[in-house]
Each structure stands twice: as C-alpha cells, then as structure tokens.
C-alpha cells in the first residue's frame, strides 16, 4: 500500500526531474561558462573521466560574468520590458475579444454549444506556422486586407501593417484566442442561471446583474485564460519574427540572436535563466490562485 503511494508520488517528481530540473541544470551550467571556437562552442566542458578532481577544477572555472554582462547592457532590460508590455497588452486585447465570444457561447442554445466549441478549436487543425504565414499574406502591402480596403474606397494608399507591432498584436490575439475563450466558457457555462434571475428579481438591471453576478463568478476562468495567454506570449519568438518589424524587440528574438548570430551560448543561456526566473512569479501566482479556488470550492 505504502509502496504504491510512493510510486504515485514519485511519478510527477520524476517527470519534473527529467523534463525540467535536468535541462535547467544544463542550461545553468552553460550560462556559467565562456564562449570558445570549438564543438560545442563554450568552455570549460565537463570531463567525467577526470574524476572528482576534474569536477572541482571544472567548478572553479565557472563564474557569473555572463549575468553581470546582462545587467550592464541595457539591451536585455529593454527587451524584457518590451516583451512584458507586449504580453500585458495582448493579454488584455485577447480578453476583450475572448470574453464576449465565451459569453455568447455560454448563452447559446444548448444544442449549439458543442459545435461552437468545435469551431473555436478548429484552427488548431492547421499548423500554427501556416496560419501565421497566412496572416503575412493578408496583412502585406498588396495583401487581401489592403485590396479589400482600397476596393471599398476607405483608403487610397495601402496601409503598412505587416512588419509592425500592430501585426504582432493581431497575430498574438488570433493565435492565443482559444486559450482565453475555453477557460472562460467553462466557468460561464457552469454559472447557475437562477442567480441571475434572483438578481433581477431583487431589482438589478441586466447590466448590473452582469457586473454583480456574472463577472465575479467568471473570475477564475478569466484569470486562467490570462495566464495561459500571458506566459507563452512573454517568450514568443515565431510571431514577432514573422509578423514584426525591425522595431519589435522581444526577449525571444534576443535569445535567438545570442544563440545563433553571436554563437554565444553562455549569454543565451543566461538570458534563458533570467527569463525563467521572471516567469516563475506569474506562474506561482497562478498556482496560488488555483489552490485558493480549489479550497473555496470545498
């Protein structure tokens, strides 16, 4: 009995060890080394055959230079800040678009709901990369959107949308929308309609009832949706590099450049470690919120 329990507990920890702690340890190790022209392109590398002595010699060669380098150079802070801004803004935008969709779905006739659900998930059946490429075709100077706007006579000269931050926001909102809609829909669907009826019986207008009943009760879904969008967007690389322009500065791109263009694996790893530390804050908050929710439910 006890053994079974132990195994059950061990599995998630083993998972964490294999897929988080060990890779993180490797990244941390690289972040403490120096670049070199070699395979792999950093030094020192750990030579296991040298035994304990080799290990201590190896440890003595590691240092935190790369982290102090990050602190000295304002590029990294600017990139972190800019990523943070883009993440916050696009999370709010996604919420603004996603909430009405989820609300509409939850209030639709019951027999429609499964098909609406499928419609929200449907875009996932196409590769994410192809959908972003499709946006490049829509937003470009000679693209569908500009052709349409010129045809309607709203504009005379094509708008420059592709390769700007606007395009990045469009791409992010589009891509992450289902992650916002689904958790909100889940909470709204469970909402007891008699509460709204009671509110109205007690003299609330429909709008008041929404703010006093629906909004607070949908909070867990909203928070879950926001985190599901915010966390991946912070490290997003594909959307800004395909839709963004030269002025779009995001930490994912900086990381890519350090790794590929600079061949500076140690600094790239240091950036990754810092990014992770920054991400841990919202993730912990999310965990706390989930736990508080669970306790409240019980």
């Amino acid at each position: 009995m006890n053994l079974r329990r132990l195994i059950l507990i061990a599995i998630p920890y083993l998972w964490l060890l294999l897929f988080f702690l060990i890779p993180f340890g490797i990244v941390l190790k690289i972040s403490l080394s120096e670049t070199a022209i070699a395979i792999p392109p950093y030094t020192p590398t750990l030579d296991l055959s040298a035994g304990w002595q080799g290990f201590t010699a190896y440890l003595s060669e590691l240092d935190f230079d790369n982290f102090s380098f990050l602190a000295e150079d304002d590029l990294y802070w600017k990139a972190f800040l800019s990523s943070l801004t883009i993440s916050v803004v696009s999370t709010l935008l996604t919420l603004a678009v996603g909430f009405p969709i989820a609300y509409g779905m939850a209030n639709a006739p019951e027999e429609w709901r499964p098909s609406l659900m499928v419609l929200v998930i449907l875009p996932f059946w196409t590769s994410f990369l192809i959908r972003v490429y499709a946006w490049m075709g829509i937003l470009s100077q000679g693209g569908l959107l500009n052709q349409f706007l010129i045809w309607t006579g709203l504009i005379d000269t094509p708008l420059t949308i592709l390769n700007t931050n606007t395009a990045v926001y469009i791409g992010i909102v589009y891509t992450y929308l289902p992650f916002m809609v689904l958790p909100i829909y889940a909470t709204l669907e469970k909402l007891d309609n008699s509460l709204l009826e009671a509110a109205e019986d007690l003299g609330c207008s429909r709008i008041q009832a929404f703010w006093l009943v629906t909004a607070p009760l949908s909070r867990p879904g909203v928070i879950a949706g926001c985190f599901l969008v915010f966390i991946p967007v912070l490290g997003e690389f594909v959307i800004p590099s395909l839709l963004g322009g030269s002025g779009t500065l995001m930490i994912g791109k900086v990381l890519w450049e350090e790794f590929f263009t600079n061949r500076d694996w140690p600094v790239a790893s240091a950036v990754a470690v810092v990014l992770l530390l920054i991400l841990i804050i919202p993730i912990t908050l999310f965990q706390r919120n989930q736990q508080a929710q669970r306790e409240a439910d019980e």
């Binding site: 030269s246 263009t261 061949r263």
Partner: peptide
C-alpha cells in the same frame, strides 16, 4: 576575431531594434 564579433553582433542588434 571573437572580441570584434561580439562587438559587431551587439551593434547589429542595437541597430536592428533601434535601441
């Protein structure tokens, strides 16, 4: 050489991002 390379890539990132 590595030192120049690092300087150049840093300069290039700066130029591309305009910061």
């Amino acid at each position: 050489v590595p030192r120049t390379q690092r300087y150049v890539t840093r300069l290039w990132t700066k130029i591309k991002s305009g910061t």
